[in-house]
Amino acid sequence: MPIRVAVLDDYQQVAGEFADWAGRLPDARVEFFPEHIADEDALAAALAEAEVVVAMRERTAFPRRLFERLPALRLLVTTGMVNAAVDLEAAAEAGVTVCGTRSHPSGTTELTWALILGLVRGTAAEDGRVRSGGWQQTLAPDLDGQVLGIAGLGRLGSKVAAVGSAFGMDVAAWSPNLTAERAAEHGARLVGKEELFATAKVVTLHLVLSERTRGVVGDPELSVMRPDAYLVNTSRFGLLDEEALRRALASDRPAGVGLDVFPQEPLPAGHWLRTAPRTLLTPHMGYVTERTYRIFFGDVVEDIAAFLAGDPVRVI
């Protein structure tokens, strides 16, 4: 009897191309789901016979009640080694092994700068003008010599800092545990949280979402931002206070907000952010690159093969 494997949220319908599923898992019946299944009843029905489920990052939540509805499930593989959408305690109680994969950080760094430059240079608006028969209207500020404020100078934030330095920006950084020595190692200077938001031309968020950092950017931070400043979030939307952001965008600051993460994903058709002024939105695609997918799905197949052989790897 072939083992049933379900691969969720294969939006680009390419998961089958990035790993040797048939060669490494000859006895598996693999089903790829290109559409997100938001309804829990529909999800439970779709996965009822699956012994192995592959989750793409945090696109699909696995709370306790879902594990209770999937008695056949033996292995859950998540891309990446951290997935806040999976209840690990419930998985363990249900006898489900959870494994992860390696990842590649450059994609999110590159998208962060795509959003920064897109906002500063008015790329989307100018593209629309050219296509509608118009011509240039944006007068863009220079980034050279401006302050780049980075909230979270870890693996991703440090890469963003290096690009900012290459552009000639004055890189300032803040996070709850950041030291001056650590900041200096990445060409940045340590500042306080208020100073970061009050002085930066661009603020970009790269903090890990936790109870400590949830809503860390709210009315106090947004209200002190320069009217000509930009805010970018490619980390997790929960770092932002949603209602505070809504109020800020309804007023006169910041000048623009770039988001690759949202309070609900996929973002509902009628959500207020879809029509919010001064925003540049991308559909959580920071990590969606060819190299990342090759690592993700290559490791996924390896995880499944190892589990079936009785020697699971990368167990979370």
Rank of each mutant, 00 (worst) to 15 (best):
residue 76 L to G: 14
residue 308 L to I: 00
residue 205 L to Q: 06
residue 283 P to M: 13
residue 231 L to S: 06
residue 8 L to H: 04
residue 190 L to C: 09
residue 316 I to R: 14
residue 214 R to W: 06
residue 20 D to H: 06
residue 153 L to C: 13
residue 157 G to Y: 06
residue 178 L to F: 15
residue 151 A to T: 09
residue 51 E to N: 00
residue 259 L to A: 14
residue 202 V to T: 00
residue 252 D to R: 11
residue 304 I to V: 15
residue 187 G to M: 02
residue 163 V to K: 11
residue 196 L to F: 05
residue 56 M to A: 03
residue 181 E to Q: 12
residue 78 T to S: 12
residue 82 V to A: 04
residue 188 A to F: 08
residue 29 R to F: 02
residue 279 T to C: 08
residue 185 E to A: 01
residue 117 L to D: 02
residue 65 R to E: 15
residue 107 G to M: 09
residue 250 A to D: 12
residue 27 D to I: 01
residue 257 V to R: 01
residue 132 S to P: 00
residue 90 A to L: 11
residue 281 L to W: 03
residue 140 A to S: 13
residue 138 T to M: 03
residue 266 P to H: 11
residue 252 D to L: 00
residue 278 R to N: 07
residue 220 P to K: 11
residue 265 E to K: 05
residue 315 V to P: 09
residue 216 V to G: 01
residue 155 R to C: 03
residue 314 R to E: 06
residue 197 F to H: 12
residue 14 V to H: 05
residue 182 R to K: 15
residue 255 A to G: 08
residue 177 N to M: 01
residue 231 L to C: 07
residue 139 L to T: 14
residue 101 T to V: 05
residue 26 P to C: 06
residue 79 T to G: 04
residue 110 E to Y: 00
residue 135 W to A: 11
residue 205 L to T: 05
residue 194 E to T: 15
residue 156 L to M: 05
residue 177 N to V: 06
residue 27 D to N: 10
residue 172 A to D: 03
residue 77 V to E: 01
residue 167 F to T: 05
residue 34 P to A: 08
residue 205 L to E: 03
residue 314 R to A: 15
residue 196 L to P: 10
residue 119 L to D: 12
residue 264 Q to Y: 03
residue 156 L to G: 06
residue 273 L to M: 09
residue 267 L to H: 02
residue 226 R to E: 04
residue 59 R to K: 14
residue 190 L to V: 03
residue 132 S to A: 10
residue 46 A to W: 01
residue 79 T to R: 07
residue 211 E to N: 15
residue 41 D to A: 13
residue 59 R to N: 15
residue 240 L to R: 12
residue 23 G to M: 02
residue 312 P to L: 08
residue 40 E to F: 01
residue 144 D to W: 09
residue 80 G to W: 03
residue 138 T to K: 05
residue 169 M to N: 11
residue 223 S to A: 15
residue 120 V to N: 06
residue 97 T to M: 02
residue 36 H to C: 03
residue 254 P to S: 12
residue 81 M to E: 14
residue 229 A to Y: 05
residue 163 V to H: 06
residue 98 V to D: 04
residue 54 V to N: 06
residue 123 T to F: 13
residue 233 N to V: 09
residue 102 R to G: 12
residue 112 T to R: 04
residue 3 I to W: 11
residue 95 G to T: 10
residue 277 P to C: 09
residue 208 V to I: 11
residue 81 M to L: 15
residue 203 V to N: 11
residue 218 G to A: 15
residue 100 G to C: 07
residue 125 A to E: 14
residue 49 E to S: 09
residue 291 R to I: 00
residue 10 D to T: 00
residue 212 R to C: 04
residue 70 L to I: 10
residue 81 M to R: 08
residue 67 F to T: 01
residue 306 A to W: 07
residue 13 Q to N: 11
residue 238 G to C: 03
residue 83 N to I: 06
residue 141 P to V: 03
residue 73 L to V: 12
residue 23 G to I: 07
residue 283 P to L: 13
residue 35 E to Y: 09
residue 62 F to C: 01
residue 108 T to Y: 01
residue 129 R to M: 00
residue 274 R to Y: 03
residue 232 V to F: 04
residue 204 T to S: 14
residue 205 L to A: 08
residue 105 P to L: 04
residue 11 Y to A: 15
residue 307 F to A: 13
residue 71 P to E: 12
residue 177 N to I: 00
residue 120 V to T: 10
residue 172 A to W: 15
residue 173 A to Q: 05
residue 252 D to H: 13
residue 222 L to C: 04
residue 40 E to T: 07
residue 63 P to H: 05
residue 147 V to K: 01
residue 259 L to P: 11
residue 223 S to D: 15
residue 55 A to G: 12
residue 21 W to I: 08
